[in-house]
């Protein structure tokens, strides 16, 4: 798929007519370079309330973009606004923004509660003690709040940082790799927490390398590749926009070689091969047709289908495709 098509698709998806919600975060023609290295190049998008996932391969420019969205880094050109105000060098705006960077920015000598209390005081939270109680309760760390943070596991430090990020009840949350070090139970808890915050109308931007979880959480996905916005929208919308891309489908059947001979004749199939383990792998540019034709074909050939699964229906494969395109 060409870049032009992807950009056109992006424009359609991010500026859908009839969308009444005003953008909370607006990134306009933002570029950032470090010497001769261009980290982010002419990126524009709007973020509305809900959960937006910022995704891309390592080195794509996600963190640079997030840092510009939080005002921690300046832009070379373009502008970033939050609630219509420039985010850079605008301390009062931070009353409405909660930022959690990817680094473990904690003070090891502090107890967890001290850290959250300090962050609450820095943000002029009116009822500090209650706010701290509530934030620590949210991340389920009440039992560990009086322990020095240097004794915490990585996951616990992340959660206490999240409590510090939430303590002033910000309208906008920008979370860079918040699930680092979290165990499955903590991930589930985090997912429920984000859903609660989303239901409260918060605007949440999250980046993560745990793609499946972002896929489950995010309403909108921003795909950043080589410092550019490769695509944006719902995950399914992106997938639909990429439907010209060849898919690999793995088929487990009673008679793989017989099925291969029959399947290769279908118009929706570009190529087939049989894996050493006996699985048939089909390359198709029209998975919709393949889904319809395969069961009929198997029935006609009297071949039992045990399992049919996409091999590359993940965001990693989308990244790979976009990078290679």
């Amino acid at each position: 798929m060409s870049t032009a098509i992807r950009n056109a698709d992006h424009a359609r998806m991010s500026s859908a007519p009839g969308t009444a919600t005003e953008p909370v975060i607006r990134v306009q023609n933002v570029s950032r370079w470090f010497g001769s290295v261009v980290a982010v190049s002419d990126v524009s998008f709007d973020v509305t309330p809900g959960i937006t996932g910022l995704l891309g391969p390592n080195g794509a420019g996600k963190t640079t973009l997030l840092r510009m969205m939080t005002g921690l880094a300046g832009v070379s050109t373009g502008s970033v606004t939050v609630f219509g105000e420039p985010v850079r060098d605008n301390p009062p705006l931070y009353r409405r923004i909660g930022v959690m960077s990817e680094h473990e920015t904690v003070y090891g000598f502090m107890k967890g509660r001290e850290f959250v209390t300090m962050m609450a005081r820095l943000r002029d939270v009116p009822d500090v003690e209650n706010a701290v109680d509530r934030a620590i309760e949210l991340v389920d760390l009440a039992d560990a709040q009086y322990r020095p943070m240097e004794t915490y596991s990585r996951g616990m430090r992340q959660r206490m940082r999240l409590a510090a990020t939430l303590v002033h009840e910000p309208d906008v949350l920008i979370l860079d790799e918040p699930l680092n070090g979290a165990d499955p139970r903590q991930r589930l808890h985090f997912k429920h927490l984000l859903e609660t915050l989303k239901a409260q109308g918060k605007t949440i931007v999250i980046s993560s390398h745990i793609l499946e979880e972002v896929e489950q959480l995010a309403d909108t996905v921003l795909l950043i590749v080589n410092g550019k916005l490769a695509a944006s929208g719902g995950f399914r919308a992106i997938r639909a926009a990429l439907n010209q891309r060849p898919y690999h489908v793995r088929i487990i059947s009673d008679a793989p070689r017989q099925l291969a001979a029959a399947v290769v004749k279908l118009a929706s199939v570009d190529a087939v091969h049989v894996d050493p383990d006996g699985a048939l792998v089909v390359l198709s540019r029209n998975v919709g047709d393949l889904q319809l034709e395969l069961p009929r074909l198997a029935q006609a050939e009297r071949i039992g289908l045990r399992r049919v699964e996409p091999l590359d229906d993940s965001l990693e494969s989308v990244f790979g495709y976009l990078v290679d395109a």
Binding site: G71, Y94, S101, L122, R123
Partner: peptide, 15 residues
């Protein structure tokens, strides 16, 4: 060095 400065600069505190 340990990147904790961001804790202060993302607060609504005049520099």
């Amino acid at each position: 060095e340990d990147r904790t400065l961001a804790n202060l600069t993302i607060s609504p505190v005049p520099r």
